[in-house]
Design a binder for these strands. Structure first.
Lengths: 168, 168
DNA sequence: ATAGTAACTTGCATCATGATAGTTACTCGT
DNA sequence: ACGAGTAACTATCATGATGCAAGTTACTAT
């Protein structure tokens, strides 16, 4: 059976996952955001099979996260540079990284995030862009957008709002 | 061949992915953070095959993201409630949701995030917890943590720091 | 007493995955 | 100018994860 495609899902998170593709793609993006761009750089750093890497880079390029750029003619050699869309994936990576560091180890942390200028530890925090208030599940609800159809309305209705003071 | 396990990777992001398990798990967490907790609630809402759902819930419980709680004896019926670790996955979901909404559609958005109190749109933004400054790839570098071994040092050395004013 | 539902588990066919190995086309040292 | 080395893939193929359909158990409702 084929893996169920999330691309027809209404939820943007599900569609985001479909767009990214798979686990490896996320690690490729992680490396790309650290400055890697060549095929062999990714391969060495990830230890991924080259055919898989080929497929993933193609997928990410098709999805508009990478731009495939010729950096050397004859033989044609390409590098993969992040588009805006790809670079914008950064917050997802940071959230994931932080979650990992906070919850995974009984062992110690092997990597930390630091400020590029001062070298001090960085710890990302999610706030609301407008109000500046922290972002918590209790304060955040899902509401139908402009393109919501009946199924979306049903889905949202099924969700129990954490905070019942406001009805969507 | 078995899917390569990321659990031995040093990068916390990679290990986070391993801990979560797969695509479906992320959507299960999404629903759980919206208040769902019963097997059939997840199944209806996701359209996932029940055996897959069983497996994923077990995995997430084993990994400590869910607690399996008996809510009805004879017949034993369980609900899956998020632990702190599970609830802490929220920022990752929000980052993913936002990325999806911003980059995916040519079609319109079917869902938005709103403030539970005021009903106004919410837009998450990543800042540094201490300095309050925005979180950008250019300002953020990877440095070895306490448990870093030689391979980690090598990996980090291979990464080209975006901002070269500081050497890790 | 019968029907219906909740929450699974089992079996099985199939498709996608990943390790290994092969290919093409250069570059570099001597 | 010849051979070794490297970059960037592509091809092969066995394994095993996935998802559908159907079965199971134990209630609840009428």
């Amino acid at each position: 059976m084929q893996r169920t495609s999330f691309s027809t899902f209404k939820c943007p998170a599900a569609r985001a996952l479909e767009s990214v593709g798979d686990w490896w793609s996320i690690l490729i993006l992680r490396d790309a955001l650290q400055g890697l761009s060549r095929f062999d750089e990714f391969q060495r750093n990830l230890g991924v099979a080259p055919n898989i890497l080929t497929r993933r880079l193609k997928h990410l390029t098709d999805e508009g996260l990478f731009e495939r750029r010729l950096y050397h003619e004859r033989p044609p050699r390409y590098e993969y540079v992040l588009t805006d869309k790809g670079r914008d994936f950064f917050p997802v990576l940071m959230a994931l990284f932080t979650w990992g560091n906070r919850h995974l180890p009984p062992e110690q942390v092997a990597m930390r995030l630091a400020d590029a200028n001062t070298g001090e530890d960085r710890d990302p925090l999610l706030i609301d862009r407008v109000t500046g208030r922290t972002f918590q599940p209790e304060d955040t609800i899902l509401v139908p957008g402009p393109a919501a159809d009946d199924t979306v309305h049903e889905r949202i209705a099924e969700m129990k709002a954490w905070f019942l003071g406001f009805d969507a």
